[in-house]
């Protein structure tokens, strides 16, 4: 009788122990793989087919879920197609190509490869295209264009994309030649002002490729100074007294503040520079 009572409990214990052992084994395996250098990070090493399919499916499910509440405006308003064509010419064709036009060198060998947008536009609804364009795709080369384009320009790009599958090479070439509208910069911060948002702003201007910024995950970079304890720093770029106005000035136009500064002008908008400055000045 006693045996009968204990049997199922023993099963559970065995199962749980087994699961824990598997997790540990998997972890150890992963670490060994990583530290042995066996994992290839070369862009010539394609994912397994199954991994590729899974990542692809993951992207679709994620986009579908996050784009659920996006409301699509009228895409045939005057000028939208033309502005979208300009944005496409300025920012998209390099990696995605266009009808009859190959992508530039940097867009050819990427892994994952940037989609052919004529196909994407046939298969994806406009709200998905908008979401991916606006937010970018992690671990691919796709940036979040909301930091480089106004809301209107984002939707104009989508309006243009929706027509892309139906353009011949000759039509596209003609449109591209006429495309001379400005792809507008974002007019204001797209979301509310907060600490997490500031971190996104830093990353979207690639600040963390040169600076280690307190609270921002990124590479161990030693190109510019570490931005830690910033509120206690007395100078901006070793030149101007450290305050919000001077920080914004320097971030937006480094050479205007210090002629020989190696910090590049990243065309940071006033709102974004302010966001960065306030974040830094709150670091104690």
């Amino acid at each position: 009788m006693a045996q009968l009572i204990h049997k199922p409990r023993r099963k559970v214990v065995l199962l749980v122990t087994g699961a824990i052992l598997l997790v540990i084994l998997g972890g150890v395996g992963g670490i060994v793989m990583l530290l042995s250098g066996a994992y290839s990070t070369a862009a010539t090493t394609q994912h397994f087919r199954i991994t590729h399919r899974l990542l692809d499916a993951g992207l679709r499910y994620s986009v579908r879920s996050y784009a659920r509440d996006v409301e699509v405006p009228a895409l045939d308003a005057p000028g939208m197609f033309e502005r979208g064509a300009s944005c496409y010419q300025t920012y998209c064709v390099q990696c995605h190509g266009a009808p009859g036009i190959g992508r530039d060198a940097e867009g050819r060998g990427m892994l994952p490869i940037a989609s052919n947008l004529a196909q994407s536009a046939r298969e994806w609804p406009p709200e998905w295209l908008y979401y991916v364009t606006k937010k970018g795709v992690r671990m691919s080369g796709m940036p979040a264009w909301e930091f480089r384009m106004s809301e209107d320009s984002l939707w104009s790009t989508v309006a243009f994309l929706m027509e892309l599958p139906f353009l011949s090479h000759a039509q596209y070439a003609e449109i591209a030649q006429r495309a001379n509208l400005e792809c507008e910069l974002p007019e204001q911060a797209p979301t509310s002002v907060d600490e997490d948002y500031a971190k996104i702003v830093f990353r979207q201007y690639a600040c963390h490729s040169c600076h280690r910024i307190e609270g921002v995950v990124g590479p161990k970079s030693y190109v510019g100074p570490a931005l830690v304890d910033w509120s206690k720093r007395k100078y901006v770029a070793g030149v101007l007294p450290n305050n919000e106005e001077n920080l914004v000035r320097f971030i937006r136009d480094p050479q205007a503040v210090s002629e020989r500064s190696l910090m590049p002008n990243l065309e940071v908008t006033d709102v974004h520079a302010r966001e960065m400055a306030r974040y830094l000045l709150a670091l104690e």
Binding site: V223, P225, R233, K234, Y235, S258, R260, L262
Partner: peptide, 20 residues
């Protein structure tokens, strides 16, 4: 001091004063 930048791990820095 907190007037100038911290000099931790200084050998790894790419630039002096952000200018050279």
């Amino acid at each position: 001091g907190q007037v100038g930048p911290p000099l931790d791990e200084y050998s790894r820095y790419v630039y002096v004063a952000g200018q050279a």
